[in-house]
Amino acid sequence: MKVFLLTHAREFDRGNSSGALAAGFAPSIVQRVRWSRVEPDPVIIDLLRSHSAALVYPDNARNVEEGAGPEAGSCETARFDSFVLLDGTWQEARKIYNRSPYLQAALKVRIAREGPSLYRRRRNQQPGGLCTAECVIELFEAKGEQALAAGLASAFEVFNALPCKGG
């Protein structure tokens, strides 16, 4: 399993980045990739175009439990070993998505989770939206990686309780 965090440049400097937490917790599985509109990462483009990875994104996607065929543009997580997550504020994630045609054309999965996000280190959270670390935890669980999910959930709980310093 591999998770690529397509990360907005500003996110690298934020002290409250849950994506950095996830990448630091499982560096052999979770990798941060800097997003660029003018020089998109060729590995990400290839993974998405070849349907070897799915984009985890809430719009135009079905719940991972429901699934759908590739013709619908949405699939279930069981079909994939690699995932791409947009890592940044909600506004930055929309910008990344809207300015990257290869993301719009990608097969997509959406995390189906009961209850709201527990993330408290940023304001303006989207109703029903999850932070990057929570998405990675859900992907670990969906792929049967319970020990990784539990470990990251514990690290996230500690991280989430810390006072925010910057960003």
Rank of each mutant, 00 (worst) to 15 (best):
M1E: 01
F4K: 02
L6K: 03
L6W: 01
T7A: 05
R10M: 06
E11A: 03
R14C: 06
S17W: 03
S17N: 10
G19V: 02
A20V: 02
A22E: 02
A22S: 07
A22Y: 01
A23K: 10
G24S: 13
G24V: 09
G24P: 03
G24K: 09
F25E: 11
F25C: 13
A26G: 05
S28C: 09
S28I: 08
Q31L: 12
Q31P: 01
R34S: 12
P40C: 09
D41A: 07
I45Y: 03
I45A: 09
I45N: 03
I45L: 13
D46E: 15
D46I: 09
L47Y: 01
L48Y: 02
H51D: 12
S52L: 07
A53D: 00
Y57V: 11
Y57R: 08
N60F: 12
V64Q: 02
E65T: 12
E65H: 13
G67D: 05
G67E: 04
G67A: 09
A68Q: 10
A68K: 08
A72R: 11
A72N: 10
A72K: 12
G73Q: 11
A78W: 00
A78G: 05
R79P: 00
R79L: 05
F80A: 01
V84T: 06
V84N: 02
D87R: 09
T89S: 14
W90E: 03
Q91P: 03
Q91K: 15
E92S: 06
K95M: 07
I96S: 02
Y97A: 11
N98F: 07
R99S: 08
Y102I: 11
Q104Y: 06
L107I: 12
K108P: 00
R110N: 13
R113E: 10
R113F: 07
G115R: 10
G115D: 11
G115L: 08
P116M: 07
S117H: 05
S117T: 15
L118R: 14
Y119G: 06
Y119Q: 12
R120K: 15
R121H: 06
R122T: 11
N124Q: 11
N124I: 04
Q126V: 14
P127H: 14
P127Q: 14
G128R: 14
G128P: 08
T132G: 10
E134N: 06
C135T: 12
V136P: 00
V136Q: 01
E138C: 06
E141V: 02
A142P: 00
A142Y: 00
E145K: 07
A147L: 10
A149Q: 11
A149Y: 08
A150G: 13
A150F: 13
A153P: 00
S154C: 10
E157F: 10
F159S: 04
L162I: 06
L162S: 12
P163E: 15
G167R: 09
